[in-house]
Simulated scan of single mutants.
Amino acid sequence: MPYVNIRITPGATQAQKEELIAGTTELLAKVLNKNPASTFVVIDEVEREHWGVGGQSLAARDKA
């Protein structure tokens, strides 16, 4: 029973999220022979203020 957590910043459309879910499920079935019916894919949207890289939040980098 695979569980995949995808974290992205806001902005993806519902259609893009559906494609991520379907594609991730398909990849696990193809590569690891996992049952799609028991594969869980969760997408978390993390605000840019809460996501940091290089010592700064993405929001702060956007402003620079």
Rank of each mutant, 00 (worst) to 15 (best):
D62A: 09
E49Y: 14
V31A: 08
T24D: 05
A59G: 02
V41W: 04
S57L: 09
T9Y: 02
G55T: 01
N5Q: 12
T13L: 03
E18A: 11
I43T: 01
T24R: 04
E49C: 00
A59W: 11
A64Q: 06
T24N: 02
F40L: 13
P10A: 14
T39Y: 04
V41A: 04
A22W: 13
V4C: 03
A64D: 01
T25V: 12
I6D: 13
S38N: 11
V31C: 07
D44I: 11
V4W: 00
T24W: 11
Q16A: 11
V31E: 01
E47I: 06
Q56H: 01
W51L: 01
V4N: 08
T24F: 03
L27N: 12
N35D: 14
I6P: 11
N35V: 14
R61V: 08
W51A: 00
I8V: 12
I6V: 06
N33S: 06
S57A: 03
R48K: 11
G23N: 05
Q14W: 06
I6S: 08
P36C: 10
T39Q: 06
G11C: 08
A64V: 05
E26K: 15
G55V: 03
K30T: 13
Q16F: 02
V53L: 11
A15F: 07
E26F: 09
G11D: 10
G54K: 08
K17A: 03
E19F: 09
N33T: 10
R48P: 13
N33H: 14
I43C: 12
T24K: 04
A37G: 14
L27W: 10
G52W: 07
I6F: 07
L27P: 13
E49S: 11
K30L: 12
P2A: 01
L58C: 07
M1H: 14
V4K: 02
F40M: 15
Q56G: 12
V41S: 02
I43M: 11
L32M: 06
P10R: 02
I8W: 05
L58W: 00
A60S: 03
L27S: 15
E49T: 01
S38H: 09
A60P: 03
F40E: 15
L28D: 06
V31N: 02
E26A: 15
G23L: 11
I6M: 05
L20V: 07
P10T: 13
Y3N: 09
A59Y: 09
A59E: 13
A22Y: 07
Q14S: 01
Q16L: 03
G55Q: 01
V4L: 03
A64L: 12
E47N: 14
V42W: 10
G54Q: 00
A64R: 07
L27V: 09
S38V: 11
S57V: 07
A64P: 09
A15S: 15
A15D: 12
K30F: 12
G23M: 09
G55F: 02
A37N: 13
V42A: 13
V4M: 04
R48G: 08
N5T: 08
N35L: 10
E19A: 13
A15Q: 12
L32D: 07
K17Y: 02
Q56M: 07
D62F: 00
E26S: 14
V42H: 13
E49A: 06
Q16P: 12
V4S: 04
T39R: 06
K34S: 12
K63F: 00
E47Y: 13
N5D: 11
H50E: 15
Q14N: 07
A12E: 10
A12L: 15
D44L: 10
